[in-house]
Nucleic acid binder design. Sequence first.
DNA 1: GCGGCGCTACTACCT
DNA 2: ACAGGTAGTAGCGCCGCG
Length: 785
Amino acid sequence: MSKVLFYLLDVGHAFAEGSMEIRLWGVDSEGKTVLVRDRSFSPWFYLICRSKSEAEKALNLINSSKTRFHKIRSTELVTKKLFGREVTALKIACQDHESAAEYSESLQKLPQVSGIAENDVRPTEQYLLQRGLLPCTWIEAETEFAKEERLVAGGSFRLTGDIRPSGDRARPALKIMSFAVLYSASGRNRLILVSARTSEGVSVQFEAEEDEGSIISGFVDFVHDNDPDMVVGYQSNSVDWPLLMRRARDLRLRLDVDRAGGEPHPSIHGHISIAGRANVDLFEIARDQAEPKVKTLENVVEHLGIARHALRVEDCEIDQAWKDPEKRKRLRDYAAQKAELILKLSEAFLDYAIQMSSLTGLPLDQVPAATAGFKVDAYLIREAYKLGELIPQRVERPYYPYRGGLVLAPKPGLHENIAVLDFTSMYPNLMLLYNVSPDTLLQAGDREADAYEIPGLGYRFRKSPEGMYTIVLNNLLTARSAIKAKIDSLRRDSAEKRVLEAQEQAVKTIANAVYGYAGWIGARWYVREVAESTAALGRNTIETTLNEARNLQLELTYGDTDSIFVENDAKKVEKLEATIRERLKMEIKMDKVYARVLFTEAKKRYAGLLEDGSVELVGLEAVRGDWSEIAKKVQEKVVEIVLREKSPKKALEYVRNIVDSIHRKDVEYSQFVIWKTLAKPLEAYEVRAPHVEAARELIRDGWRLTLGDKIGYVITSTPGKLYQKAKPYIKATVKDIDAEYYAANQVIPAAFRILEILGVSEDQLPKPTAQRRDRSVVEFMEHKP
DNA sequence: GCGGCGCTACTACCT
DNA sequence: ACAGGTAGTAGCGCCGCG
């Protein structure tokens, strides 16, 4: 017998010699690959019964049909909780997940059975729950050496005894491989070039000489030679892997890049799974971040300061460049750069992904692919298991909307010295304060003297014991404070500090998402009343705060959900904070002070000048991804002139100059591009829209588009509706640009939004001239058949 | 045939 | 597919207009 200590990277299950086997893949302290196989696991499900006697009846029935249910390993009558209520249930554990699925299907039809639970929790997830293990943590296992396998450098072991967390979390040195695929993007989608790079500094490229086969076989060999623990790409789950898999299939080649002699395969959350290696698509992490708006690899690394002036090649140039021997070198450099940037980006994202993995229990490769809702789901599953709560089935249900946060109409105009006060973690703290949780909600008929009643809604939540959300949020908020304190105690930037910051970010993400999760119909613990009550408590909180501010004669300019904007009167603000603390048991704190702030008539749109001289724009065109750069730049500049110099005149002058340069087309082409997300399949659109028409044109040219792709288009001088004027930006030049559109529908509205607040009238801004109108009429006539 | 009007679709933002 | 609240542009159908 030998003890194996390893860092868990991937979990899988398989059938071996007729029985189900859980496979734990990891690395040991020397960085060698380890595989631990466990054949002792029995996946389970629960049958919920109406009463104990009914449960006994069902149990007898099942136990007397041993032949029919011969793959049941054990049955047990248990008392559990479901949504905080005691239930009697039968725990049925089976030989493997297939028999579990089959039996759960038939047994839930028994008349004694009123419900079912945990049948839709994946076997690997059940395994980790039962053994108390988390991915991206160290585990010790009592095993015996099974065999030396070609694909498992550190050896393959069979679990013979205990398996448990070792308590250590320090990340070992992981072997990482990045890769990027270049392909002929339009039409046939043939492989042109694959570039790969390892964290040990090995770099390689595979090119199509005669055929693509050499690329695939070369790549597969490279993966095995370097044996990475983690494979990183950019859009690799949506583009690179599917393309490699498709071409390998077409060419009848095996893409056996995993550690078990198998091929990549689609898994949950739409990601590609590679047994024994963590396959991570860094685009999926970038996707969750607000900036940059257009998330190309080059934009993302530049935004993060990882690289500057990254080499850029448009997808549509690749074919041509490859055919031209002169340009081939540039293409090779571009592919090599991609692999390098992806590797660097993985360093920037890895700490966060690891922390999220060990917090939620999701394997590392699933973390980036899982949406926020599923991350919370995974986290709650772990906490519920520890609390002895059954994990409810995910069920389809109807959607009922409810009222959300309160938004005040701003006082339009320019204001000086305005303080922004906001509640720290308002929703989580309200849920804590009122024990708002799926398992504390009382039903209409419940008699419970000691309960919180939600004003205006009448829902009641019992005061004790603490609900699941209460416990969880308490843990998360307490952990976050502790992590923050630790970060503050570390003065200099260090690896330890960065890990803590990543951990804090992960904890914060989950804590902030719990409220939204509660109101999400896809949630296992969906209870609309929980979300609805929290939002109602939030409205009351902000209402009370507003009233107290009025009592103190503290002038209000704006407020949204958990924040209020007031005159910066230190004494009154302090009084307000104290009153709120006392009356509501909530913390409202001054977040920042605007030396000057400008509100439009609209909610959720304003611009402020901070005391350090920096300018912030909120909600305005300039911070939106779907306006042209030129319009955004002009609006930002106007805001700066207005806030810093209070000179609408100067701003006006600036706008006039820019509009002139637009008409002269003395503006860089990229400034005209408008980006919009393709949010649904083309055929699902009910109206014609510019970005949809541009997307259709790209498809006609043979491009593959994915849901969620950003479509870049420009408005050309083609006559007609806007959607007829739109052209994919790669297919037009500055000559095609409709200057009048950009002046009249982009730059001027964005600038006027700010200037009108300062009393500038519309006719002080440039307007379409007769001459310009005439020219478009001429063009229109010329285009007539 | 066309402009004005009101409604809807669509996207992306704020907290 | 974490929530609701909100702004803004453009498309589209309808109406009136001798």
